Simulated assay, not measured.
Amino acid sequence: MDRGTFIQHEGRPAVRFERTYAHPAERVWEAVSTPEGLAHWFPSTVELEPHAGGKITFSGDPNLEAMTGTVLAFEPPRRLAFSWGGDELRFNVESIDAEHCRLTLVNVLEARDTAARNAAGWTVCLAELGKHLSGASADGPHSTSAEPWQPLYDEYVASGMPYGAAVPSA
């Protein structure tokens, strides 16, 4: 499984993840682009205006203040991008065949030293997305049933991914 890589995206630091799912692109699109789908795995409660230039709001994350961003791209069923604080999130859903697709998540970072922290967080979130898509109970990344964040963070730091940003308290 792709545990995420540190990359440069259009001259900015980013972490990138790729997952392949045994589901049609439309199923994965629903999970990554609607408040109902995101509720199962995303770290914040999301409301969004489904068009480029629309407003997106984030609330309910115990590690962040509520905030708003802008939908940068909304192209069903393949591409969603939005700003989140100083970061950008980019989701690309690519059909492989009628029953399989590939999801690429790129978190373009405001600060390089957030790479290990955010990569660990997205690893937890994507594990919850995998549960949700498979029909298993997905209680979200802040739940006690989610994969523990700290060992993942330690793994990313040990692998040489940039770190140093404040991390959530346990």
Rank of each mutant, 00 (worst) to 15 (best):
R12Y: 07
S95M: 10
G11H: 13
V46C: 08
P24T: 12
L105Q: 02
P77F: 00
H142R: 04
T104W: 02
E155R: 02
C125H: 02
G121H: 01
F17T: 10
A115L: 04
L80W: 01
R112C: 13
D97S: 07
A52P: 04
P13M: 04
A138Y: 11
L126E: 06
D154G: 00
E30P: 04
E49M: 05
G54M: 08
E36T: 08
I56E: 02
E30W: 05
E47D: 10
G130I: 03
C125S: 07
T70G: 05
S137A: 13
G130W: 00
F82N: 10
G11L: 07
E88H: 11
I56N: 02
A119P: 12
Y21G: 11
P77S: 10
M67D: 08
F58D: 06
D97M: 04
T57H: 13
P35S: 00
Q150S: 03
Y156Q: 06
E36C: 03
A25G: 03
N92E: 15
E47H: 11
E36M: 04
T20G: 03
A66G: 11
L126Y: 03
A138K: 11
S83N: 15
F82S: 08
D87T: 13
Y153W: 11
H100F: 08
T20E: 09
E155A: 05
G130S: 01
W149K: 13
P62C: 13
A31L: 11
E36A: 06
R102V: 00
A98S: 06
T123H: 02
A14L: 08
E155D: 08
R12L: 14
P148E: 14
E147D: 15
L152N: 02
P13F: 07
D113A: 06
L48E: 05
